Amino acid sequence: MLSELIVAGVVGVMLFFTVAVAPGIFKVLPQQWASVYVRNFFPKYYAVLGAACLVAAVIDAPQAVRMAAAVSSVLFAISLWGVTPAVNAATDRGDRRRFGLLHGLSVGLNVIILIALVWALWAA
């Protein structure tokens, strides 16, 4: 039961960020401030949600929740330690093409995680 609540919380945070926060960041904040905010926010987002998924994966949980949470924690780690630094490096170099590809990868990983966790909650 606790694992499902943790996963539901992760899904809620992901949906809130996607629907409410992300669309407004670059509309409300000047470009320079928005960039600083995003660079500061995403490592925490990936670390906290990844840790929550790891906890959900190791405590007593239905098989679907345990597997989806475990895979999600790995994907959050890849986003944190692989994709985010590469996105930042592409931005710093002004490499818009690479930034676009890596940003697309980041969004894709988030969508995969979201789908996996929602599926696990439904299947539990």
Rank of each mutant, 00 (worst) to 15 (best):
E4I: 06
R97M: 08
P43L: 04
G104S: 10
V58S: 02
R39Y: 08
R66A: 15
S79F: 02
Y45W: 14
F17E: 14
L121W: 06
V36S: 15
R98E: 14
R66P: 03
D60C: 08
A69Q: 14
S72W: 05
W122N: 06
V36K: 15
V83P: 06
V118A: 01
F42L: 01
S72P: 11
W33Q: 15
A90D: 13
A124G: 15
W81H: 09
G24P: 00
W33E: 15
V71N: 01
G82N: 06
S106V: 01
A56G: 04
T91L: 13
A20F: 08
Y37E: 12
A8G: 13
P62E: 11
L29M: 10
V58P: 00
S73H: 04
V7T: 01
V55P: 03
F41V: 00
L101G: 15
L80I: 11
G24T: 10
T18G: 08
S72K: 07
D95S: 11
G100A: 07
A8C: 02
L109A: 12
V28C: 02
L2S: 07
Q31I: 07
D95F: 04
A34T: 01
F99E: 14
G9E: 10
W119C: 14
L2N: 11
G104D: 06
V58W: 01
R97G: 02
L5Y: 08
P23I: 15
E4P: 07
A77N: 08
I78H: 03
S3M: 03
E4V: 06
